[in-house]
Nucleic acid binder design. Structure first.
Lengths: 342, 342
DNA sequence: CTAGGCTTCGCAAGCGTTTGCAATATAATC
DNA sequence: GATTATATTGCAAACGCTTGCGAAGCCTAG
């Protein structure tokens, strides 16, 4: 049924070996025979069986991506970058949605190992037990963790946005706009990325020295959480002139609370976010935020993977820190000198 | 290095065949030996090589999805549904972003055929030449087209939202709210899905008989297109009491134009969309729209594929029509009886 | 004309499985 | 206890490809 090397060989009156060599452009076959083989292969519409090829070469030309949910636009963007990079290198990408369930994650990984994928991109190994992580890091396939701080576990590569620099940039920006009373909405202390943003932000404020008053509030790091925090705070304290939300979702919540409290963004209160999700450019007012290079992160992760796939068994983990950048839209406004001086 | 059947066989003092049979739960091996094999396999941390298995069985336990861009939330949702269905059946899903480029599409398909995927979900085969389509439909692997009308090309299965019923439902809803002057914004006549929605919509209006005045306007079927159409129309005609946009993106454009013309939604003009994209629930006012069961469509597509993968070589194309439903939010409002009677 | 060196090609093993068939062991029957 | 049926197991081929090795074939040089 399916046409194989053997069919071509028979048709050309040569051995399968020569056919194989011809097709793979390998050295050691006369130009004339090669040409003949090629035309016959084309005529028969030959398609090499990658399973067979993979079996003998030990390479599947496949990568995989295990993320919590592709519907999250952050991952969709990452996936697109990763897939583009893979495609360019002649690899395919298997998509796995884990919902961060440890069980699903491990099941996926096992399946993938059985399929002999040459590398795995992972959202996180946080939910896994120590022995499971051990198993992964010793599985032999390169694994890169997406947007997770390196130190977590040995044995994994990472690709990470520079959260510290981003926080710092947000802080500097607000200070540059002459804000002096700034609230910072963020999540729990253990959340590595968020913590880095906070550290960077604080550094910026310290750098400004003098009379900057800031308040850091922790809560659920989503829209609803930020909404609640902000609502409560606005009742209890004198309003700030600016808010730095640790991610865009929180910024949306904060903005809603601000409007409901009868103030305006950015006229009364400036708001800056972090991530630059698509919605940030769509809502009113368009949100000024720190952009994470999601597409590039996906691409970089695949680069790392492929690099390591080249030297089976003898690569060591690698860490890439990706630059972030400020994208100015309309949710921040400078404090006028007069207002400031009064 | 990697542990194989042979290793287990040696360790247990049996033949690889018995090991294989034990592991696959096949009939014909004594309970005692099987148990022994299993424990040894576990101890050695054995992972079957799917490439080898696939080579002999001819089945790769892999499906693929070729879509234009995973960053489009519509496809992300489809992909999630498809992947969940695949996972449940023990299959993996390869993700391919084609950007609708005919060349990329064909390259992907060829790679996938070489990897012996057992089925392919495709966005569209529209850009392909006749011979390319022929090649696909005769490739031997089942292919299902996502959200494309069946008749297009023979040989492909389809999974399609019931656009006709959706259009009809939108029409009936507006009539039920006592609207009598309705504009319908849509795309070019050749666009199959949009055309169906229009047909359904017209049917509803006809059903209402009497004094319903409707106007159908065609243009670019995106936000900007609808914005321009609507802007122009509002200057030239007396405003309608309701607008049916052929998709949500167009509804957004229409709403913007309406606001800019100094009218309100839904107080002055009701707007209903189609698709139910995520943004529909987020904008102000939240958009009433026809929901397409995207997740379910992805799931259904995989069901079709797997069903056909079961009978290699002897399945025939299959078409699934998915129900849509109206989701009422806040962009539509009934005409008061008084206003209506006056 | 013969020896040595290249180039071109075929042979055959091997990658890790599954599976039909034959061989052996065990159980059942009388 | 012999005979037959049945449950286990091993043997070996096959899946479609790559690749080391050696056999021809051809060319060049001495």
């Amino acid at each position: 049924m399916r046409v194989t090397l053997r069919d071509i060989a028979r048709e050309c009156g040569v051995d399968v070996a020569t056919v194989s060599r011809s097709l793979n452009g390998a050295y050691g076959v006369r130009e004339k025979t090669r040409r003949k083989v090629l035309t016959v292969a084309k005529r028969l519409n030959y398609r090499p069986n990658r399973l067979a090829k993979g079996l003998v070469t030990g390479r599947s030309r496949t990568l995989a991506m295990v993320i919590s949910d592709i519907r999250n636009p952050f991952f969709a963007e990452l996936a697109r970058g990763a897939e583009d990079a893979a495609y360019r290198a002649g690899y395919e990408l298997i998509l796995c949605n884990s919902d961060l369930s440890a069980e699903k994650q491990m099941q996926y990984v096992h399946s993938l190992l059985e399929k002999r994928v040459e590398g795995i991109l992972m959202n996180s190994v946080a939910g896994l037990s120590h022995s499971e992580r051990q198993e992964l890091s010793q599985s032999g396939v390169p694994i890169v963790l997406l947007n997770r701080p390196p130190a977590q576990v040995q044995g994994f590569s990472t690709v990470l946005a520079d959260n510290f620099a981003g926080g710092e940039r947000a802080g500097n920006y607000l200070i540059h706009l002459r804000h002096r009373v700034i609230w910072h909405l963020t999540g729990p202390r253990q959340h590595g990325n968020l913590a880095e943003r906070t550290r960077g932000f604080r550094k910026a404020l310290e750098g400004a020295g003098t009379e900057v008053a800031s308040l850091t509030i922790r809560g659920h790091h989503n829209t609803e959480g930020a909404y609640q925090m902000m609502k409560k705070l606005l009742r209890q304290h004198r309003a700030p002139t600016a808010v730095f939300a640790a991610n865009d979702a929180m910024a949306f919540g904060a903005i809603r609370a601000i409007f409901e409290a009868g103030r305006r963004v950015p006229e009364d209160i400036s708001v800056i976010g972090f991530d630059d999700v698509e919605l940030a450019g769509i809502i009113r007012p368009p949100l000024t935020t720190i952009h994470q290079p999601k597409y590039e992160m996906g691409w970089a992760a695949v680069e790392v993977l492929l690099q390591q796939a080249e030297r089976p068994g003898q690569w060591s983990p690698q860490h890439r820190l990706m630059e972030v950048r400020l994208v100015e839209r309309e949710s921040c406004r400078p404090i006028s000198r007069r207002a400031h001086d009064q």
